[in-house]
């Protein structure tokens, strides 16, 4: 009853395949690793700069800047007060520096995801072919266990900030792309026709009609992007990203219940601050849709 066994490749064949692929990828990283590394240097510099800025500035200034930024975005006293309380709580429990590292990381990741994701989303919205091509890639990025793509990233970059950054961006960029695409595709065709009828060029249509009207959806994408970056920093700590994620990792390894809880709650607090601020800002941009006739 040989046929009942699945006709899989033999151990030797599989080993040969794996060895060949691994070997050639290793060769690739040896040859081009430095170039790729250098290419990402500016990004690393920026991340380090932001991190140092947040950590080395006196804490009252950072606290004030956060409060002002949150107030400017949300225009809500309650959210602002909540932000200050949460940050004080974080500082009191000695997590200030780690939190600043994480905030720097998430900020850079989100900016990168917006800068890369929005153009891709726009191109996707314009062409069904591009959408058909990009969608499966996004599916892959979202479902592939993050540990798996950490392997090649680490092989190229080693351990540190940049591989962490790349891993987080890969994880966080799909909602940005998808929601930009969706937002633009959902824009009312009547309004687009009107824009055409008045002789808008493709660019004018994009800037004057499509992007402004897709903005609520795009803001939801940015919001999702921030949330996913935050959840990913814990995984990224496994490849040497410092910050709150690392504290969590240490806590898991040593079964430090309190330390783990505190770091986890700090991440939650930051997530809530970012979420409330960006959502309120997105809503405020849509003030024209709130006041309704009658």
């Amino acid at each position: 009853m040989d046929w009942i066994e699945f006709p899989s490749l033999g151990r030797t064949d599989l080993l040969a395949i794996k060895k060949t692929i691994d070997g050639s990828f290793r060769g690739f990283t040896r040859t081009y690793g430095d170039y790729i590394d250098n290419f990402f240097n500016p990004l690393q510099d920026f991340l380090v700069f932001l991190e140092n800025l947040l950590i080395n500035s006196p804490w009252p200034i950072i606290l004030a800047v956060f409060a002002l930024a949150v107030y400017f975005l949300s225009r809500k006293i309650s959210v602002t007060v909540g932000t200050v309380l949460a940050l004080v709580f974080i500082g009191v429990f000695g997590l200030w520096e780690d939190t600043m590292r994480t905030v720097a990381m998430v900020t850079v990741c989100t900016l990168l995801a917006i800068v890369l994701g929005m153009p891709i989303g726009i191109v996707m919205a314009r062409s069904d072919r591009v959408q058909g091509f990009v969608n499966p890639i996004l599916d892959l990025m979202q479902t592939m266990p993050s540990f798996v793509y950490l392997i090649p990233v680490v092989m190229i970059f080693g351990i540190g900030k940049v591989p962490g950054l790349i891993a987080v961006v890969i994880y966080a960029i799909p909602p940005m792309i998808r929601l930009t695409n969706l937002g633009i595709r959902l824009v009312d065709t009547d309004v687009l026709e009107a824009a055409d009828a008045f002789g808008s060029s493709a660019r004018q249509k994009l800037m004057n009609v499509q992007l402004p009207l897709a903005l609520p959806t795009i803001m939801a994408g940015i919001n999702q992007c921030i949330m996913m970056s935050l959840s990913m920093v814990v995984v990224a700590s496994m490849i040497g990203v410092r910050g709150l994620g690392q504290e969590v990792l240490v806590a898991i390894n040593n079964q430090y219940l309190t330390a783990g809880m505190l770091s986890g709650l700090s991440i939650v607090a930051i997530a809530i601050i970012f979420d409330r601020a960006t959502q309120a800002y997105g809503k405020r941009l849509q003030k024209h849709s709130e006041v309704v006739h009658g």
Binding site: D190, V191, D196, F198, G199, S200, P212, L213, L215, H288
Partner: peptide, 23 residues
């Protein structure tokens, strides 16, 4: 065609088709 639409024609629509985010 774009120039023609810009300078020679203007259109009014059944469902108004105003830009909702503009005054």
């Amino acid at each position: 065609l774009r120039e023609f639409r810009r300078h020679k024609t203007a259109m009014v629509f059944q469902k108004f088709a105003l830009l909702p985010h503009r005054t």
